[in-house]
């Protein structure tokens, strides 16, 4: 069978709603688009552990300490699941776990804008769980119907855990919102800090050529803007019901257009942050990952040696 016929057959499978498995034939373009998406998703989970990790040693009660430890552990676990999926896709390209993580340190793979940002107070730890994970759930739930079966399977578990995270964050937030004046102020400042990043998180309004190809392959189904609108629908009323304000004087629901109108985030600024790792915390957090990946390489190498010695 020639390439064109193979490709046509593959597209028929996609259009019938069939799921693709790792061992199935797939066009290079499909593989590369998937790999780019899942690689970025995986390293974002791992980088996403760091903003909250800063608060693990400082969580203010024992219950919170246990909860945030478990939460950050989940993020690492999601990273592991996603990297396993990415490893299978990357294997024919001669890449494995080490290389996928090398790419992060070398700036060859991006991670979500939100994880480049500062989380200077305990309220930020709450807002990350509540709103950042809330946004992530919307993104990830929309991918549950993806045409790539291994991705869909890990997303199912990830979404279930993320909804716990959202509740964990919400619980921190509710306690602060009902707390002292100082706590409420801390919370408002955190919401102010995260709002613009959250809007950017869903990506540009226009459908880029790469995004269109992903939609063609049914890797993803919804557009960025649809997802952003879903987020606003769900969270604007919740944020306001706590007596918090959203730092956008132009934010309103337009009944005629049946959608939220909002001030555009600074696309250029965040675009640079993500592309060149130029956010306020990018370098520091990549430094932490470098510590884990490069400075601990001796451990992984020792384990390989020990395994070989055992096999002899």
């Amino acid at each position: 069978m020639n390439q064109d016929a193979r490709h046509a057959q593959f597209m028929e499978r996609i259009e019938r709603g069939e799921k693709i498995e790792a061992t199935d034939w797939m066009p290079d373009e499909y593989r590369k688009l998937l790999l780019k998406l899942i690689h970025m998703h995986g390293v974002s989970e791992i980088m996403g552990a760091f903003p909250e990790k800063e608060w693990v040693p400082k969580a203010p009660t024992l219950k919170r300490k246990l909860a945030i430890m478990a939460k950050v552990q989940d993020e690492m676990g999601h990273g592991q699941l996603l990297l396993r999926v990415a490893e299978d896709l990357a294997a024919p390209l001669g890449k494995g776990r080490e290389e996928l993580l090398d790419d992060l340190l070398a700036g060859r793979v991006k991670f979500h804008n939100v994880f480049h940002m500062e989380s200077p107070t305990w309220a930020d730890a709450g807002v990350i769980g509540w709103l950042v994970d809330g946004a992530a759930i919307i993104n990830q739930a929309a991918l549950l119907d993806t045409s790539y079966a291994p991705y869909a399977r890990v997303l199912k578990r990830i979404c279930a855990e993320e909804s716990f995270h959202m509740q964990h964050g919400e619980n921190i937030i509710l306690t602060l919102a009902r707390g002292t004046k100082g706590q409420r102020q801390m919370l408002q400042e955190a919401v102010d800090r995260w709002w613009e990043s959250l809007l950017f998180f869903f990506g540009p309004v226009e459908v880029t050529p790469a995004a269109q190809r992903m939609i063609d392959y049914r890797i993803r189904i919804k557009t960025n803007e649809e997802l952003r609108q879903q987020f606003l629908n769900k969270y604007v009323p919740r944020i306001r019901s706590l007596g918090l304000t959203i730092p956008d004087p132009h934010l309103r629901y337009d009944e005629k257009q049946k959608k939220w109108l909002y001030t555009q985030p600074d696309w250029e600024k965040f675009g640079e942050i993500v592309r060149y790792n130029r956010g306020p915390k990018s370098e520091e957090r990549i430094g932490l990952r470098r510590f884990a990946h490069e400075e601990q390489r001796w451990v992984r190498e020792a384990m390989v040696r020990a395994h070989k010695m055992q096999a002899v």
Partner: peptide, 27 residues
């Protein structure tokens, strides 16, 4: 728990965090 996100490999990171949580739970 200080090793969270910093362990030599990701599987080890997850495992070590379970141990950390157990210890705090016992405390």
């Amino acid at each position: 728990s200080e090793w969270l996100g910093l362990a030599p490999d990701i599987e080890g990171d997850v495992a070590f965090s379970s141990i950390a949580q157990d210890e705090v739970g016992h405390a």
